[in-house]
């Protein structure tokens, strides 16, 4: 097989490039600790989520304090709103670690805190679990970024990260 020496060089470089890419991604997981959405949220019956009889946090979705600076947020996505998020903003204090549990009661949705790396698919029957640190106070938009029906473009919400001092820690949403 005749392979020109330049092309042999290029094959070697291409393989190095590929290994470099894989190493970068592995570094992202091990160094800064970026974790992928996985199966840790478990499964759930979408129709029970719809009717509020799932026996989980999705029956009364909202923010709960689970430890010092630790919060859980259950978010239910449905055509065409986030509950909570759309009608009233999700409020969490700055400097906290927040675990979102997101599921859908009808069709597939997306959950993206706009302009950040917090982004997940919301699939009926599956619970997406995402843990995020919010260091600074700020106001974020939440976008549904997967087509979910004719009103998809209106589906949005808000997340308010408020200063510790202003946060009423005893109640959720």
């Amino acid at each position: 097989m005749d392979i020109h020496r330049f092309e042999k060089l290029w094959i070697a470089i291409a393989l190095l490039l590929i290994i470099g890419f894989i190493s970068t991604v592995a570094y992202g997981s091990l160094g800064p600790g970026v974790k992928m959405i996985d199966n840790s949220g478990g499964t759930i019956d979408a129709e029970e989520v719809q009717s509020g009889s799932s026996g989980t946090g999705f029956d009364d979705p909202g923010v709960t304090k689970t430890g010092p600076n630790e919060y859980e947020v259950y978010v239910k996505a449905q055509q065409f709103q986030f509950i909570p998020g759309t009608s009233q903003p999700i409020e969490v204090p700055a400097g906290s670690t927040v675990t979102f549990y997101v599921t859908a009661s009808d069709v597939t949705h997306g959950f993206n805190i706009a302009g950040t790396n917090v982004n997940t698919m919301v699939i009926p029957g599956q619970v997406a679990e995402l843990t995020v640190n919010f260091e600074e106070p700020g106001s974020y938009g939440i976008v549904c970024n997967e087509y979910c029906g004719g009103g998809h473009h209106t589906m949005e919400g808000r997340l308010e990260v408020v200063p510790q001092s202003e946060y009423n820690s005893t109640e959720g949403v």
């Binding site: 974020y140 938009g141 970024n145 087509y147 473009h153 919400g157």
Partner: peptide, 18 residues
């Protein structure tokens, strides 16, 4: 952060945070 598959990529509360 502008999403795909949307008829109107303008939002009421989101634009400010792109």
């Amino acid at each position: 952060g502008v999403p795909r598959r949307t008829a109107e990529p303008e939002y009421n509360v989101v634009d400010a945070t792109f």
